[in-house]
Write a protein that binds this DNA or RNA. Structure first.
Lengths: 211, 211
DNA sequence: AATCTGCATATTGTATACAGAATACTAAAC
DNA sequence: GTTTAGTATTCTGTATACAATATGCAGATT
């Protein structure tokens, strides 16, 4: 069974990549024509991808003025962070008991994260993989989907933060304590620590953005 | 200051209206060309609206096979309901103290809801307005936006339910008890009752869908 | 009769065209 | 020298065109 995938999806990923790499800086105007020729496709799939990104809060769309990359705004970060925190906690509740091999994998990722210094991209990828792995057993597909979508936002802030501030805390210790609670199947404590972990992260990023 | 609004937004609302009215039944294939000529616009804004609706879970998009109206699926309803419940509770927490005039307005809507029997559309509109009014003071704009988007899903189920089953419970009593707690500024109790209200509603709809 | 094959048609995904609005540019007026 | 009016250009939003794929049907085949 050969699967065909719409161009707009490829373009969507490509644009995100351009934003993460910094080729499209925050606040920069995005001209669909130049993107189209850069990517070797027509304007149509580019605009479809940009429209989706605008719904996801990565890009702003102003009528008659086209698209701009969203600026880094502490308010937006805190708002999205609060939502993601709540939703990931909800997902954790729905997970049921986390199987041991998953917990092992989480520790493994966490260890790798602790060892990885300097490589910002890898750090973020590992941190996200940790979260994804943790919530992998959540049966609520739509919840996982919304969480994945919302992650677009904090990812940009983390990238900027880690790049510029050089900090790579992202607290592997927090992760470890959450895993510890899950090992005892103490869901309430795990959820509480998870929520706390989010709050700390948001606060750290927020304080940095506000200089 | 005259505001221009993109055609895709008008088309978006128009398509939702067609779905709610039943002109586009669940599972029905949606041909962008016929919609375009019906609405008197070109395919482009129609497809943009359909793409958005597919991201919101109202419509399915299969590569090469175009769009179909999403079928009513109890799993999807429960999944979305669980998310909305959590997010609306979160929003309520962020609201701060609800001003008295808002509480008065909530009672007013609730009273009107109790009086309105038979008119399904009006019932749903009032129920939604009740929720919107309750969360109106939530300062997290993005949270309010996500909630509004997610509402697209249960709204369809409620419409089908009220239409077919004739029930118009939607529990104005629950509403009243939530308001009562808010009057005492007992946020914890209000949140708990709110969550309970959601669970009941989801359960009622879910049981009905499963026949 | 039921299933398969090839053709005609319809529909999709993407590309291009076009009209109007926004921006950039030029040059005159103060 | 700065501002401003007018024009040229660019760019956006929407419409249309096009190529490829999916759908439906008539006739052939078992």
């Amino acid at each position: 069974m050969i699967i065909r995938t719409p161009l707009r999806n490829e373009v969507y990923r490509a644009i995100l990549e351009l934003i993460y790499r910094g080729d499209l800086a925050a606040g920069a105007r995005v001209r669909d024509t130049v993107l189209a020729s850069q990517l070797g496709v027509s304007r149509t799939p580019v605009r479809e991808a940009l429209l989706r990104l605008s719904r996801e809060g990565v890009v702003d769309a102003d009528m008659g003025r086209g698209f701009t990359v969203g600026r880094l705004d502490p308010v937006e970060m805190r708002e999205t962070g609060a939502i993601l925190s709540a939703l990931e906690c909800l997902a954790l509740e729905h997970c049921g008991e986390i199987p041991p091999e998953r917990l092992a994998r989480l520790s493994e990722i966490d260890g790798e994260l602790a060892r990885t210094r300097g490589d910002v991209d890898r750090c973020i990828a590992l941190d996200e993989e940790w979260h994804r792995t943790l919530l992998q057993d959540c049966p609520n597909r739509r919840l996982r989907d919304i969480i994945a979508t919302l992650w677009q936002v904090p990812r940009r802030y983390m990238r900027a933060y880690l790049r510029e501030a050089g900090r790579v805390s992202l607290s592997t210790q927090h992760h470890a304590r959450i895993i510890e609670a899950l090992r005892r199947n103490d869901r309430a404590t795990a959820a509480e620590r998870f929520s706390h972990h989010w709050q700390r992260g948001i606060e750290e990023l927020g304080a940095w953005i506000e200089r």
